[in-house]
Every structure is written in structure tokens, then in C-alpha cells.
């Protein structure tokens, strides 16, 4: 698949269970899009996350800020979204400010639970439509949404439909229909689920993926399997080493090392072998879960490497972006 085709929908929604590296994957997609000339907006939904840290610090607020060339970030919370909605729709900026500092949004969203999600999705829609509402239009080409955890995903994406069912007429009804149109149109938006190659994340991802296909009719793209041990040894090599590094051969191997001026003793070799075994054991576990993920989903799976340098900084994201580009082209 061409990268341009991959980036065709303007809105890419990235979701996954907590701790799977959802934000990292979202950031890698943002870099890929930026490399291909797009002006990108990364929206973190309703939480103070790791986004600013990935891009070297500072704060990310409701007003988009450029984090890295071509990549902008914003923190998308329902409080600000409600204030903006009231300001834009009803010209009520003063009163909306008053209510922002209290439990007000809590009350409203408890009374009408879908509303929080609607507010968030509404802002995404604003960005997608590139509406000018006071701050000037931003002209984003790609909007990457670092969405709520997969468990809440169905509720989040179903909210517009729910509201459209509940409200028969009027502006709210119309607006929720607009959101639903955006979410169900594969040319406009797409969901990417992120998993680790482990029991629970794979099970949950498959459940969400099936729900998106069957119940919600929401288009999704390739799944991302994060943290895969794609070390320097193939499975075969890691296995072969057991024979090659058997007790009988230790002296010979040390001699080979000596030729390159490397001093290795039996203990060093044991450590080398230890890590080869560890890699193999972990990869066996991961392969099993990757097979399950591939079998169970309608989507192809893009494997992202475990980062041996993982301090989670821009160079790491660049590495992941390289892999994404490479893998997408192979699809």
C-alpha cells in the first residue's frame, strides 16, 4: 500500500488497552504523515498524557501548538470543548467560563453520558471540517486522535448514533448525524487498534475489532502489535546456538573471538547464551499471540519492534515511523 493511500482518511483514531504504547504509535503515525508533507494535528483525548514528553517537553493545551516541524498537538478535554461549543453555537463565552471551573461538566455528562464523547468527537469534526471559529482555521491535513482505552472505545464511537436515536429533531440531532457520517466513512476516518503480543491485550483488541466490524460499522485499518522482540537473531539462529555453544565448543568460540581481539571467557559465553534463550522464550510467547491476533482479525497486523533504547524520546518515535513506512508499503 502507498503511504498516501494509507493516509487518505483525514482522521486516524488510535486506541488500545492501557500500557500498550498507544500514544507512541499515534506519535509515529504523526511523524509518518509529516514526512509526507502533511500538516498534522495530534489530539490527546481527556487526559494529560505522554504526548508533550515525547516531543521534548512543555505543555499541551486546548489550543494546538507545534511540537515538531509539521506536527501539532492539543489536549482535547470535554470541559474546553463544551465551552467552545457554547461560545460558537450560542455566543455564551462568559457563562461557559464560570461553569468550567466546577463540577458542571460532570453533572451534564452524567445526566447525558454520551455528551462527553459527543463534545470530544465534535471538536474532532471541527478540526476535520477546518472550521474557523474564532482562533482561525488551522488547515490540518491529518488529525491523529489518541483515543480512550479500548474498553471505552465502543461507547466513545457509538455516542453520536446513541444521541441521534435519542434526540429526534433540532440542531443536536443534526450535529450527531454529521459526526456519525464522519466516523462511518472510510474516506474520512479510520480506527487503528494497538496491542501487545500478550494474552489480555490480544483478547481485548480482538473483541474491540470485532465490535467495530460487526456492531458499529466503523472502518478500521491495520492493527499494530507493539513491543515485538525483533532482535538480531532469528528464531532459528537462537535455537541453533544451543548446539553451537555447547560445552565442547566453548574453547573454539573463545578462540574465534580472540582472533578479533575480543576476550571472552566461558562465563561471558554463558551470558550471551542466556540472552539468546531469553529472546527465544519471549518471542515464542509473542509469536503465539501474534498468530492469534492475525487469525482473529479482519485486518492485517503491523509489527513494531521493542525499542532496546526505549527512553521514549523523539529518536525512538522516528525509528518506529521508519518501520511503519516500511511495513505499510509491504501491505
Amino acid at each position: 500500500m502507498q503511504i498516501d493511500e494509507f493516509l487518505d482518511p483525514k482522521v486516524l483514531i488510535v486506541s488500545g488497552k492501557g500500557g500498550v504504547g498507544k500514544t507512541t504509535v499515534a506519535a509515529a503515525l504523526a511523524l509518518v504523515a509529516a514526512r509526507h508533507g502533511r500538516k498534522v494535528c495530534m489530539a490527546e483525548v481527556d487526559r494529560k498524557g505522554t504526548l508533550p514528553k515525547l516531543f521534548g517537553g512543555g505543555e499541551v493545551n486546548y489550543q494546538p501548538r507545534e511540537l515538531s516541524p509539521g506536527v501539532w498537538g492539543l489536549n482535547l478535554n470535554p470541559e474546553d470543548a463544551l465551552a467552545e461549543y457554547l461560545r460558537v453555537q450560542y455566543h455564551m463565552s462568559r457563562i461557559s467560563r464560570v461553569f468550567r471551573s466546577t463540577h458542571f461538566v460532570d453533572y451534564i455528562t452524567t445526566a447525558a453520558p454520551g455528551l462527553k464523547d459527543i463534545l470530544v468527537l465534535g471538536k474532532i469534526w471541527y478540526l476535520e471540517q477546518d472550521r474557523d471559529h474564532g482562533g482561525g482555521a488551522h488547515g490540518f491535513d491529518t488529525i491523529i486522535v489518541d483515543a480512550p482505552a479500548a474498553g471505552h472505545m465502543a461507547r466513545f464511537l457509538q455516542a453520536p448514533q446513541g444521541l441521534a436515536d435519542a434526540v429526534r429533531v433540532g440542531p443536536i440531532r443534526r450535529q450527531s448525524e454529521w459526526l456519525n457520517e464522519m466516523l462511518t466513512d472510510p474516506k474520512r476516518s479510520r480506527v487503528h487498534l494497538v496491542a501487545l503480543a500478550e494474552e489480555m491485550p490480544v483478547t481485548e483488541t480482538l473483541e474491540t475489532s470485532t465490535a467495530l466490524d460487526k456492531d458499529l460499522g466503523i472502518p478500521q485499518g491495520p492493527l499494530f502489535a507493539n513491543g515485538i522482540y525483533t532482535g538480531l537473531l532469528t528464531d532459528e539462529e537462537a535455537g541453533d546456538f544451543e548446539t553451537i555453544a555447547s560445552d565442547d565448543n566453548i574453547d573454539e568460540l573463545c578462540a574465534e573471538a580472540k582472533v578479533a581481539n575480543i576476550n571472552l571467557d566461558a562465563e561471558d559465553l554463558e551470558a550471551l547464551l542466556g540472552y539468546a534463550r531469553f529472546l527465544k522464550a519471549r518471542r515464542d510467547i509473542q509469536s503465539r499471540h501474534l498468530r492469534k491476533l492475525r487469525r482473529g482479525s479482519s485486518q492485517p497486523v503491523i509489527e513494531l519492534p521493542f525499542l532496546f533504547s526505549a527512553g521514549l524520546a523523539l529518536p525512538d518515535i522516528e525509528t518506529l515511523a521508519d518501520v511503519v513506512e516500511e511495513q505499510v508499503e509491504k501491505l
Partner: peptide
């Protein structure tokens, strides 16, 4: 074998 050993060192 030496090449193989190098890979193991890389991995380690």
C-alpha cells in the same frame, strides 16, 4: 561461527 557469535554479542 564467528559471525554467529557477533550476532549473539549484538543481541546481548
Amino acid at each position: 561461527r564467528a559471525q554467529f557469535l557477533a550476532k549473539l554479542i549484538d543481541n546481548e
